[in-house]
Design a binder for these strands. Structure first.
Ligand SMILES: NC(=O)c1ccc[n+]([C@@H]2O[C@H](COP(=O)([O-])OP(=O)(O)OC[C@H]3O[C@@H](n4cnc5c(N)ncnc54)[C@H](O)[C@@H]3O)[C@@H](O)[C@H]2O)c1
Ligand SMILES: NC(=O)c1ccc[n+]([C@@H]2O[C@H](COP(=O)([O-])OP(=O)(O)OC[C@H]3O[C@@H](n4cnc5c(N)ncnc54)[C@H](O)[C@@H]3O)[C@@H](O)[C@H]2O)c1
Lengths: 225, 225
DNA sequence: CCATCTCTGTGAAAAAAATCACAAAAAATT
DNA sequence: AATTTTTTGTGATTTTTTTCACAGAGATGG
């Protein structure tokens, strides 16, 4: 058993965690590695390898106890650590996120919203405290906010990231149409390009047709659609 | 030069395309591989390798012509192929996407929206034609829609995916809190978990602190934040 | 127009990740 | 209680991806 976990495994384990939550809700008590794989589009081999990075937890010949596996992942990845989050930019996308239940009562709770447009702030009905953009660094620092979501226009994104980082944010999810960076490289940043996802899909489809793609993801598929 | 392109390279090339668009808008004429790398958080080596999968295009000792590289990626990845898209589920998130400019006038144009709630459909002000959910398969087939975005509640997601696939959709982006699957494995699916991104960030931060993560991404960072 | 300097393109090497294959442990069956 | 079946956990192997290193093509500059 290895205590050093590859990043792709961490990401898959997070997906497994979500799956275990759902299975537990549905009253499922036990799962086998091929079930998990089937659900996540990953081979059973990889599933078992990923889980084994966290130590032994399965039952030989009897699979994994759903609740136990969930807690195991939870504990080992430190998901029990609660963190505060904020949303910078409360336009169409920022508002949708701001009102999303999981962001309000989950482990990574949104406790502040920021926008440069004061009128916009006054219009919004929400239980989350909202602040003008110029107070971002100060508020982030005071509230101990560690995670941030950027949903501002492309021109403002890097500047907003800088202010968040100055306030002590350690992780950022960025939806603006530009990869934002942290100069020190110490802050984790995940750039998500929603429109770009369509571009990627289209490119993969094209290449799949002309057979010039090395591999298309997903493990042994079933038979029929 | 290799005509078979690894999937990670395809994804990075799509990011490069976005960057070239922006640089061109800003009047930048030439870029060097380290610039591109710096912008995307990837090493210059990888950038050059990725580009070289598409054939020679750079100028020895003089970098890449922005417009030329953009068109080169565009052509080689088949991004010139226009495709129609639709959005299934017009709640908070679906509406934000539906009104996003790039989805309305980009190459992957949203030409239909679906919701099971007729009242909701009647309330919405948009230039995109909206349809009740039960017509999904029929409309998708008739309009020749190839790409779809799923933004329905978790319970409905797989069922909606099935209907889209029955209508002939070839690629799906799914925002519901469950990995949806295509039985044949022929349909490309990208599951995006917005809340899960926060979980991943938190897990990576925890592991970084306890030094039990194999590698944290991002190439040689600069000096200061 | 020669020397030098710069940056691409790519085979080779290294690193990382996924897959395999099987021992071993427990459950199920007879 | 012995045998068969099942399924985990993990070293070993294979595949994939990234990084390296440098030849070579062209720019630059005297
Ligand atoms: N809406 C979508 O579906 C969608 C899809 C993909 C990507 N995006 C990206 O997400 C971002 C937000 O999109 P949107 O549609 O919500 O845009 P929007 O224009 O509706 O909202 C942007 C908000 O940011 C605020 N803002 C501007 N500068 C700011 C600053 N310096 N600090 C804080 N707030 C500031 C504005 O006042 C506005 O409220 C954009 O970068 C967009 O490209 C949006
Ligand atoms: N809103 C967010 O910020 C956010 C963030 C992360 C993930 N998500 C996920 O995105 C999805 C949508 O979220 P939301 O906040 O927009 O939810 P929502 O409840 O506001 O909207 C869901 C919409 O889907 C429609 N719908 C239900 N069943 C349908 C069916 N069978 N066919 C077509 N339409 C149907 C509903 O009528 C409703 O309009 C959910 O799965 C949610 O978990 C949302």
């Amino acid at each position: 058993m290895n205590r050093i976990i590859p990043e792709p495994s961490v990401i898959r384990l997070c997906l497994m965690y979500r799956l275990m939550e759902r299975l537990e809700n549905n009253g499922v008590k036990t799962v086998f590695s091929p079930d998990i794989g089937e659900n996540l589009g990953i081979t059973a081999h990889t599933i078992r390898k990923d889980i084994s990075f966290l130590g032994e937890i399965g039952n030989t010949a009897a699979g994994y106890d759903v609740a136990k596996l969930k807690d195991h992942i939870h504990g080992n990845l430190g998901l029990d650590k609660k963190r505060f989050a904020c949303i910078a930019g409360l336009g169409k996308l920022g508002q949708a996120l701001l009102n999303y239940r999981q962001f309000l009562d989950g482990d990574y709770r949104v406790i502040a919203g920021f926008d440069s447009d004061i009128n916009n702030l006054e219009m919004l009905r929400t239980s989350v405290p909202l602040y003008p953009s110029y107070r971002m660094t100060e508020i982030v620092k005071d509230m101990g906010i560690e995670l941030a979501v950027i949903a501002v226009p492309v021109q403002a994104a890097q500047e907003v990231a800088n202010r968040l980082i100055a306030g002590g944010v350690k992780g950022i999810i960025n939806f603006a149409q530009v990869n934002v960076k942290s100069k020190s490289g110490q802050v984790l940043i995940r750039n998500i390009d929603l429109y770009g996802e369509l571009r990627i899909l289209s490119a993969l489809l094209n290449l799949k047709e002309t057979a010039s793609l090395k591999k298309v993801n997903g493990p042994d598929p079933g038979k029929e659609d």
